Amino acid sequence: MRTKLLLFFLIANSMVANASQVDTLKINSTAMKKIIPNLVITPNSYSTSGKKFPVLYLLHGAGNTYKDWATRIPKIKDYADQYNIIIVCPDGKTSWYFDSPIDKEMQYETYITKELVSTIDKEYNTVAQKSGRAITGQSMGGHGSFYLAFKHQDIWGAAGSLSGGVDIRPFPNNWDISKRLGSYSQNPDIWEKNTIINMLYLLNATDLKLIFECGTGDFFYDANKRLHLAMIEKNIPHDYTERPGGHNWDYWTNAIKYQLIFFDTFFQQNK
């Protein structure tokens, strides 16, 4: 009996020692004058290796919080271990990750690009350059990841989108977008300027590695298909996948696995 108990405790201690660490990092945003919580997942080798780690910024969708990626897909913590990366999940409310021209408390582009990234690089052992940073997200977060990466190719070297809202114009009354940009009828130029499918002119084909996908049963499927075709027309290299599925966590649980392989390849090639 004593031998069995000893074996049990050794196994339990080994599991704890080899588990990723999940922390909540609270940042006082100067841009928005409020405190923003962020989930930070470090791999099991973080505390012992002394090396620098690449970082994946993982954005949530509308109606979700910074906790949802880890709670809805618990294997996210295992992926941090598997790929030896730091995963950062900021709380984006229903900001769409814009700097809102009408709401001073929704300046999330500035927060993420200027405040969050610099704080992560200061507080953690990171590869503090674009070769060590990637960004992706689901739904609103898929819009946000492409939006931020397209506009800030000096920060991220790779970007993805899962079922992303890559064309917001067909949804003028949904998900608080009008609260961030004003109504489409009164501010059409702002909407046109800030929708992903109209931002391809920003891309330099050699500066940003891109991957995105969407389920064929998703209400964002048509927009993602059009984005894919527009990228082909403009000779923008990218990985695009469509498969059966809807706008839900079952789909994203499966899809994130493939994006992580893509990002791992990017990180390994840039060591």
Rank of each mutant, 00 (worst) to 15 (best):
4 K>H: 12
6 L>Q: 13
7 L>E: 11
7 L>T: 10
13 N>T: 10
13 N>L: 15
17 A>H: 13
19 A>M: 08
20 S>Y: 08
21 Q>A: 14
22 V>F: 11
22 V>S: 14
23 D>P: 09
35 I>V: 15
36 I>H: 10
37 P>Q: 08
38 N>I: 09
44 N>V: 01
54 P>Y: 00
59 L>S: 01
61 G>M: 02
62 A>Y: 12
63 G>K: 03
67 K>T: 12
67 K>C: 08
71 T>L: 12
75 K>N: 13
77 K>T: 13
78 D>Q: 12
80 A>P: 07
81 D>C: 06
88 V>N: 01
90 P>Y: 07
96 W>F: 15
100 S>F: 07
100 S>P: 06
106 M>I: 11
108 Y>S: 01
108 Y>M: 10
111 Y>N: 03
115 E>D: 07
116 L>D: 00
117 V>N: 07
118 S>A: 15
119 T>K: 15
122 K>N: 14
123 E>T: 15
136 T>C: 14
143 H>K: 08
145 S>R: 04
151 K>H: 11
153 Q>R: 03
156 W>R: 01
156 W>P: 00
165 G>W: 04
167 D>N: 15
170 P>L: 09
170 P>Y: 12
175 W>H: 13
178 S>H: 14
183 S>Q: 09
187 N>I: 02
188 P>E: 06
199 M>F: 00
207 D>I: 00
209 K>G: 00
209 K>P: 00
209 K>W: 01
213 E>A: 10
216 T>I: 05
223 A>W: 01
226 R>V: 05
246 G>Q: 07
247 H>T: 05
254 N>L: 13
254 N>S: 14
255 A>V: 03
260 L>T: 08
261 I>P: 09
